[in-house]
Simulated scan of single mutants.
Amino acid sequence: MPDDDPLSVPTTGILTIEAWMRPDDLTPPNVESSGYVHWLGKITYGGGNNVEWAARMYSLDNTEDRANRISGYAFNREGGEGVGSYFQDPVQVGEWIHYVLVINTVVRDAPYPMGYTKIYKNGDQRDQDSLAKLKIEPANTTSPCASPPRVSAPSAPVASARWRSTRTNSRATASLRTTTR
């Protein structure tokens, strides 16, 4: 999906990424770094990074003891380390998981002075983390919203994904549907 302002956190200060995912392989062959795939995100590397957010799943055999951890991250434009929320439960091949990541820079209070990331699995909130941990200030970039090209098609197909960028008086929605195996 091409770049579109409603897919960027700064448009309204709140972005919700919702997807049904079904891992078909718990040890995907083409992983990044310590053993994970970004299966969805607004990320462009090389020639000037344009990084915003990413949905990630760690391989069963990753090197960080994060077996099949499913997470969502917010980044500064330059990339590098991001602030992420996660859940880490046993995952079965072919199991459908309802994934929701919220990145919120509007709600600012003592524990979250710059906002937060929050993640849900199958409707239950599982984690929430402060963007202030790493001074994350999401930017609106020109990156497309997709499975990043430097990673092969992930072994965690997305049945459908929906992004919602909301604020009190403004709302924008973009949707993407892909086929599953």
Rank of each mutant, 00 (worst) to 15 (best):
D4W: 07
D4T: 06
L7C: 13
S8M: 10
S8R: 11
P10D: 02
T11F: 06
T11P: 03
G13Y: 10
G13V: 11
L15Y: 05
T16C: 04
T16K: 13
W20K: 12
W20R: 05
W20E: 11
D25S: 12
T27Q: 14
N30W: 09
V31S: 10
V31W: 06
S33D: 11
S33W: 11
S34Q: 02
S34W: 05
W39V: 14
L40V: 15
L40E: 03
K42F: 09
T44I: 11
Y45E: 02
G46C: 13
G47F: 14
G47N: 14
G48M: 05
A55N: 04
R56H: 15
R56Q: 07
M57N: 07
L60P: 10
T63M: 03
E64P: 08
D65S: 05
Y73F: 12
N76A: 00
N76M: 07
N76F: 04
N76E: 14
E78H: 13
G79V: 02
G79K: 00
G80N: 12
G82H: 03
G82Y: 01
V83D: 10
G84R: 08
S85W: 02
Y86C: 13
Y86W: 08
V91T: 07
Q92M: 02
Q92L: 07
W96Q: 05
I97N: 00
H98Q: 04
Y99G: 09
V100K: 09
V100S: 08
R108Q: 06
R108H: 10
Y112D: 00
P113K: 03
M114L: 01
M114F: 00
Y120P: 08
Y120E: 14
K121Y: 00
G123L: 15
Q125N: 04
Q125D: 05
D127H: 13
Q128K: 00
Q128H: 01
Q128D: 02
D129K: 14
A132T: 13
K133R: 15
K135R: 10
I136K: 00
I136Y: 01
E137Q: 04
E137I: 07
P138H: 13
P138D: 13
T141G: 07
T141N: 14
T141Y: 12
T142N: 12
A146F: 01
S147F: 12
S147R: 06
S147Q: 10
P149E: 06
P149Y: 08
R150N: 01
P157A: 00
V158Q: 08
S160H: 02
A161L: 11
A161M: 08
R162T: 05
S165M: 02
R167D: 04
R167S: 04
N169S: 14
A172T: 15
A174S: 15
S175D: 14
R177C: 12
R177Q: 04
T178Y: 15
T178L: 01
T179F: 05
R181P: 06
R181V: 09
R181F: 09
